[in-house]
Amino acid sequence: MSPTTATPAADPRLEVRKTYKLYVNGAFPRSESGRVYAVHAASRGRGAAAGAGSRTGALLGNVAQGSRKDARDAVVAARAVVAGWAGATAYNRGQVLYRVAEVMQGRAAQLAAEVADAEGLTAARAAATVAAAIDRWVWYAGWSDKLAQVVGNLNPVAGPYFNISAPSPTGVVAILAPQRSSLLGLTSVIAPVIVSGNACVVIASQDRPIPAVTLAEILATSDVPGGVVNLITGHTAEIAPWLASHRDVNAIDLTGAADATGVDWGTLEAAAADNLKRVLRPEGVGSQAQEPDWSATPDLHRMTAFLETKTVWHPKGR
């Protein structure tokens, strides 16, 4: 303790602790269940390789433990906003995503500290991870008005018609966020889903939820309409089956099922088949599923996985 920060014993300041809440429909409610669970820091120095189960560090806080009903409410919120978000111009969505990067930049120090605690990274590596996450938003923001040119097409047809295929968002997407990469990985699964006009319900990393809560606060203050991203913290194995079987969810990203405690992604995919959801599987096969390397420059597959193709015929004049 340095002498300059020491306060006189007669005037102790009460610690102001933070309540970590959910992010649903643009608001920050507690879980309807009233539950919380303790989140601990990863032991420092072991790096991102420290998996679930090695959570022996200091108590970081009590985080809301979301329930199936919180997820249900989040789906309702996402469904309500998806038409408006999908209807926004691609240019506008790109600006909004870029704005997220701007606001993140202003809170980079806080994010770096939280990522360091959550993932057990050194300060330098945590700062680099946050910078990469900010750049990831910018990278995806640029795609908003280019996606249609790349995956859309003017199809040659045997008749006097223009035949145009254009991508459109699939609707409400449930996302199991990566368990290990609490910010870069989270960004890398949310941004590609919402850039094309989808709304999403995200189950944050079970053991590393605090950077996700901060990202939710950033999203709430950066022009992303409430309900486009809904973030539930809690036990992945408890909530994921309800989203997988939910009839009003159009697609599910199972990336975070790799390494999640008690989650069998094959069962989730089977449940998702009930209403023909689009499913993005985790990398790897069966129980060998693993998280991808988030530091690599992404390709388009996380965006194209959650698109539908709309084809229109238009008579060709002279």
């Binding site: 789906v75 009003d248 009930d274």
Partner: peptide, 9 residues
């Protein structure tokens, strides 16, 4: 059904 339904149904 045990699964949440949606307005499409």
């Amino acid at each position: 059904t045990g699964a949440y339904s949606g307005p499409d149904y």
